[in-house]
């Protein structure tokens, strides 16, 4: 009889948490590798239009972004509600686009320049006028590869 008593006393042993850090570290590394830091702080509202024939943008390092949209609420006092262009972290004018592209080019290898793409992230409510101005500027500096950023939607309407 007393042979069995021993087991009864012990109860369930505590689960070892020694491997918990390892698991967390694994997750951590996963996120560290896949993460892309948010490179700009948006000062405008950009709700992308939807499309079906999307292509993925390759080589993120070769992409320069131009944002167009209405300023956020907190900037509307200064900049109004008309759609504005944002380059990097600041509001910009159409005339700032050429120097912006040239600067982006300088930062890249000469061989990579023809592969550079300009991604236009434009709010769907913006009128084409400002977009056209931007496109004309891009043509002038020979930045001809562009990408109209859009989100995915269903095939049927």
């Amino acid at each position: 009889m007393s042979r069995f008593k021993k087991n009864k006393d012990e109860g369930t042993p505590a689960i070892s948490t020694a491997s918990l850090p390892d698991i967390i570290f694994m997750l951590l590394f996963f996120f560290m590798v896949t993460t892309v830091m948010r490179e700009v702080e948006l000062k405008i509202v950009v709700k992308l239009p939807k499309a079906t024939e999307l292509q993925k943008l390759e080589k993120k390092s070769l992409v320069s972004y131009i944002y167009i949209g209405k300023p956020l609420k907190k900037y509307q006092k200064v900049f109004g509600t008309e759609p504005r262009i944002q380059l990097n972290d600041a509001f910009a004018d159409v005339k700032d686009i050429q120097p912006f592209i040239l600067k982006e080019r300088e930062a890249r290898n000469e061989k990579e320049v023809p592969l550079m793409t300009t991604s236009l992230k434009v709010d769907e409510d913006v009128k084409m006028g400002i977009v056209t101005d931007v496109k004309q500027e891009l043509r002038k500096v020979n930045a001809l590869k562009i990408n109209y950023s859009a989100r995915k939607r269903d095939k049927n309407w």
């Binding site: 236009l120 990408n147 950023s149």
Partner: peptide, 8 residues
Amino acid sequence: DTGLVRKL
């Protein structure tokens, strides 16, 4: 990033 790729 996805979008419509065009050439000017």
